[in-house]
Design a binder for these strands. Sequence first.
DNA 1: GTACTCTGCGCC
DNA 2: AAACGGCGCAGAGTAC
Length: 667
Amino acid sequence: MRVVVLDFETASACDLKLSGAWRYAEDPTTDVICASVTVNQHDSFLWTPNHVNSTQRLNALAADPETIFVAHNAGFEKAIWRRIMVPVLGFPDIVNSRWHDTMAVCAMRRIPLDLEHAAKVLNLPQQKDSEGSKITLGLSKLSKKGWYDRSAEKLLRTYQYCMQDSNTEVALLDEIGYLPEGERDVWLMDQKINERGVRIDKEFVRRAQQVIAGTQAPLLREFAGLTGGLKPTQVDKVKGWVEREGYWLPDLKKETLARVLGSVESTEKGEDFYGHDLPDLPAMPDRVARAMAIRALLGSASIKKLARMDACAGMDGRARGLVQYHAAGTGRWGGRLLQPQNFPRGTGKHDPDAAVAAILTGDHEWVQTLLGEPTAVVQNSLRHALVANPGRALVAGDFSGIEMRVVLALAGQHDKTALLATGKDVYVDMADDIYKKPKGTTTKKDIAERTIGKNTVLGCGFQMGWQTFKRRYCPDQTDEFAQGVVSAYRKEWAPEVPKLWYALDEAALDTVRTGEPHEAYGVEFSIDGRWLVARIPSGRKLWYFNPQLRRKRMPWYTEENPDVREVWTFQTQKMGQWITVDAYGGILTENVVQALARDLLVHAMFLCERENMPVVLTVHDEIVIEPLMKDAKFSTLEQIMTETTKWAKGIQVPIAVEGWVAERYRK
DNA sequence: GTACTCTGCGCC
DNA sequence: AAACGGCGCAGAGTAC
């Protein structure tokens, strides 16, 4: 078997970042400049399209079924191969099973995904040539006269850059190797999903943009008129204006504005993770209130998804490459390009069909008359732009409250998993404990109590403290109330769960301290090179880079109670930054539970693929499929998702699935 | 111009 | 005993 490390350099008028690899590779202006080809880690050559000798060599490698191709973000190399190398330049295809992706391994091992930072963090002997990268990007830029500058000198520099990239990739492959068998299968499925894509209703996108264009210009003008020429997105400047108007706001978040405008709509606000304390404020001057109402409406960038859908949809109307394998350290997929994982969910009140029909007129006044504020209607309908092929349907299923269910099962809180298995409402059961009432007293009609119970069950499984609970879910209640809630969860409702936190905390810390493996609740911690590895009950491993011991003042440290302990830290990426974070029981529990929930999802996704129900999207606890059968039913998917694995049966995870069948994506 | 940080917003 | 989990994208502002 031969291993080829392959890296293309390309140039195009199409914006790769904006449109994604598949749309980019289809673009008529996209040119392949060169490729570096490294055989068995040492034998390198440069391929260029018109060079006979290198073309023959590359052709022979591609034609050999025993040769595998390694790339960093193989999806890109594959898109170029399938859309250009095969159909335009006559190379033989390379099937998915012959591709390997070092980026996927970086993702699995929780180090930065981009080659430059991965090489840096790992201290590889070969680093990326960042200057060459800029010159290569320059090949895609038109000069002022409308020419591409692709002089011999620039091309030569690009070739050098390409060869150095290859060196870095070879060093990376040496260091991190391949995906283990199970994850290899997940990645292969990921590639299928990304290549399959999701169909975009381009007509709908166009009409929605018309509606937006018609409705937003006057609002922007009005906002500028009120504020002296500002845009609603200029946060600092708008805050300054508000102050000059004699008012004060801590920030311009939608939630804050909703509170001061007195228009907090639903009681489900408890879902919001980041509520905050607002002092009692005087009434807002009318012009400020009007400006803030416009800001609340136009502050969301979600309608930008429309342009992105347009940019990403390929010639056949499908957008590809929308999900990233193992983007989260726990293994969950991340969303890419038009980010299909954070579509506004809508109020739940709107009828998708009515909204779509109104938007399809492209007439913002009609939308306004029929359904209200057009911007809001379009925002809430964005997800409906994802559609099934004609004559087919989308089917979706999601695991309800899956993390709450897994944490209870893993902790061995059998009374509660049994209660869940009966289908009873556990939130009211929790509320009985919080309000110290006999079991069965609280009912679904006690909305406020049930919401507190719900937030407790969903929120307290991972060591959340009372301060956080209060801030998020009941800022108007007393400290004692919030303390009582957290205590009811830990002492009365799910006393097994805290034991899980402490056991994982201790086992992981002992492993870092001694370098020897330690186990708790079926989670085996060990050291593997520069990582701490947690092997979870599904058999999969979670990776923590560069574990280090340190002494730490605990969050509750005071002069009277100077609590300093030994903890361990690891490095990870947060908001694009490579940072060191502290590990503790709650976070480890959260990670393990989220990872197990992901594995339940993956298991169901495999079954879907096997049963001819192609997966087109995954949103953490949700699967969307586009079955080939015309009369697809939700019950088939439900059955698949309820069919759990051996390990899940072992710890008795009570599964519940909800879903729908429709022509368009919905919630 | 490009890269980076910060705020804000949306999701599970 | 005690602890704010996981993401990606857009726009503004700033540094280079």
